[in-house]
């Protein structure tokens, strides 16, 4: 009993274990911390493998009518599992996991709505592209037959 009281008293004069996070930025991250996914669009071969592997679907590709693709990555939806990096045929060049800490989003950034709009647009673009391809194929076949 007395021992516990003594310890409680000595604990009063020990340094604190917590950090005032947004004001004091001295959080020590271990080596190889799993942080944000970073990418370089120049090296990407647009194979869609990362999109298929991503569990929360935080990488979404948009299909342009001319065949080129565009993608966006949502850092706030990402769970930092690293599946995309493992699925990537060019890991380290096109896609890699950094040690940077993800930042919190502000209200002005409006991340959610922007993302939903992007997701819907991407899904629509895919459908349109598939329909276009199908129509082209059909046309070709008809031309062949005639």
């Amino acid at each position: 009993m007395i021992k516990a009281m003594m310890q409680a008293f000595t604990n009063l004069f020990k340094p604190v274990h917590t950090v005032k996070y947004p004001f004091e930025e001295d959080v020590v991250l271990p080596k190889d911390y799993r942080g944000l996914i970073e990418y370089s669009e120049d090296d990407c071969i647009f194979c869609d493998k990362c999109e298929k592997a991503c569990p929360p679907k935080s990488i979404v590709f948009y299909q342009h009518p001319d065949g080129s693709k565009e993608y966006k990555y949502n850092a706030w939806l990402c769970i930092y599992c690293g599946e995309c990096v493992r699925a990537c045929p060019k890991p380290g060049e096109a896609l890699w996991q950094s040690e940077k800490k993800p930042l919190s989003a502000t209200k002005e950034q409006d991340v959610n709505n922007e993302w939903f709009v992007w997701q819907r647009a991407a899904a629509e673009s895919r459908e349109n592209h598939a329909a276009m391809k199908k129509a082209a194929k059909e046309k070709k076949r008809q031309e062949k037959e005639s």
């Binding site: 516990a4 310890q7 409680a8 604990n11 274990h17 271990p30 080596k31 911390y33 799993r34 930092y80």
Partner: peptide
């Protein structure tokens, strides 16, 4: 309450190991 604080502080030792191994 003091014991609660102390155990939670000591628990960080294990949390640190797990963070270092798994990265999260």
């Amino acid at each position: 309450e003091a014991m609660f604080m102390q155990i939670m502080a000591d628990r960080e030792l294990v949390m640190d190991i797990q963070e270092a191994i798994s990265g999260n």
